[in-house]
Design a protein around this nucleic acid. Structure first.
Lengths: 208, 208
DNA sequence: TTCATATTTTGATGATAATCGAAGCGTGGC
DNA sequence: GCCACGCTTCGATTATCATCAAAATATGAA
């Protein structure tokens, strides 16, 4: 249930029960417990009860657990890259190979830099804002969000950080809106469109 | 058991059983399971079996879980700072208020900077090496270790990163050797000596 | 109002896991 | 060679947990 919620979509109690392979009554018990322990938040809309991760801390703990859970035996190289490894969502931003490459490009081009006051957060540079404006992302919209602007979020498959926070979320939305990427309706996987391949290579030197 | 191992010290099976409040036979079963799932590593020395965390991934997952587990209810400010909050060890490096302030100072003074190739690791600058040399830490000794040089490690009490990796471990050793800090034998807590208070203020502008 | 749908609660059952004492197995000391 | 010690394995007991069907609750639709 929790892993399925990592994509940022809230789901109803019955949906999550089906995903977990249990009856709704069983699922309901589990979700109540998860809510008590502040791992999920519920949002009631009519007769539907939507469950979503409580916040980035929960998402981070899950990803950290996946790192230890999925660690291959020593000296064993990983399997063939599936669509999930190429690009997927993590909570509300991009992860996988695409997410990590974007993170690298952003730091390499000095579009963002680690905040000198500590806290492990990134600040966007003036050059970065210029580039973001070209994508239709304005400083105001990011500053309005009551959350960290950007921070490195550890990627469980790449084992390297991708961009989390308000910036990461805005980039995901922008990419979706430009139809560079498309969500898989049934999973966290994200596919890169042909337009996406073309423009990502041009703007970010990211080739797929 | 796992939390007690976060200080980086390996412990014997019976020690861990006592900590957990169970008989050695019960503890042994748990430790075997933890070993199977690659959360702990064992090191056999004669008739003593020492158990320690398997690596930084396990430590990171534990700290991430503590963040969600210990998250106070919304709008509630934390309790009085105990010795653990002031300074403690995390795996094999310093954490708590001291660890976080050091991290801030290192980035602020540009003694280390985020590696532009990505990976969320820090590189030590030439100015940083000069400062480290004054502490008796040489580049060779850090490069020899087969581990990441330095990376931001999330602190569960401060919720901000401190310095992990080979650099973090070397700093802890150097501070201990200079008797700036002293280990509490029974916990992860670390106390700051009067000499430490004086020299830390002088060298790092860190006042306690 | 009445019915259908989504969800939770309750209560009973069965599966699973934790626990401990006793016994077995290495290792070090004498 | 013998014993003491630390640790693990085994077997049996007990507690706990997950699970589901049925009933209850709540919402929306007809």
């Amino acid at each position: 249930m929790l892993l399925s919620l990592l994509d940022g979509h809230a789901r109803t109690s019955t949906e999550l029960s089906i995903i977990a392979g249990v009856t709704p009554s069983t699922g309901s018990v589990h979700l109540r417990r998860l809510e008590q322990d502040r791992l999920v938040k519920t949002h009631r809309q009519g007769r539907h009860h939507y469950y979503g991760l409580s916040g980035p801390e929960a998402a981070r703990a899950l990803e950290a657990l996946q790192v230890v859970a999925g660690a291959p035996r020593a000296g064993f190289t990983p399997s063939t890259p599936g669509p999930l490894l190429l690009a997927r969502t993590c909570y509300d931003h991009m992860a996988g190979r695409l997410g990590v490459l974007l993170h690298d490009r952003f730091t390499q081009m000095q579009w963002m830099a680690i905040d000198s006051s500590g806290g492990g957060i990134y600040q966007v540079t003036s050059g970065g804002w210029k580039m973001l404006a070209a994508l239709g992302i304005e400083p105001e919209s990011l500053a309005a969000a009551r959350r960290k602007l950007a921070y490195p979020c550890l990627d469980w498959s790449e084992r390297r950080p991708h961009i989390g926070g308000a910036l990461g979320a805005a980039l995901l939305q922008a990419f979706l809106q430009k139809r560079w990427i498309a969500r898989d309706p049934d999973s966290r996987a994200v596919s890169i469109t042909s337009a996406g391949k073309r423009d990502l290579a041009k703007k970010f030197s990211v080739v797929f």
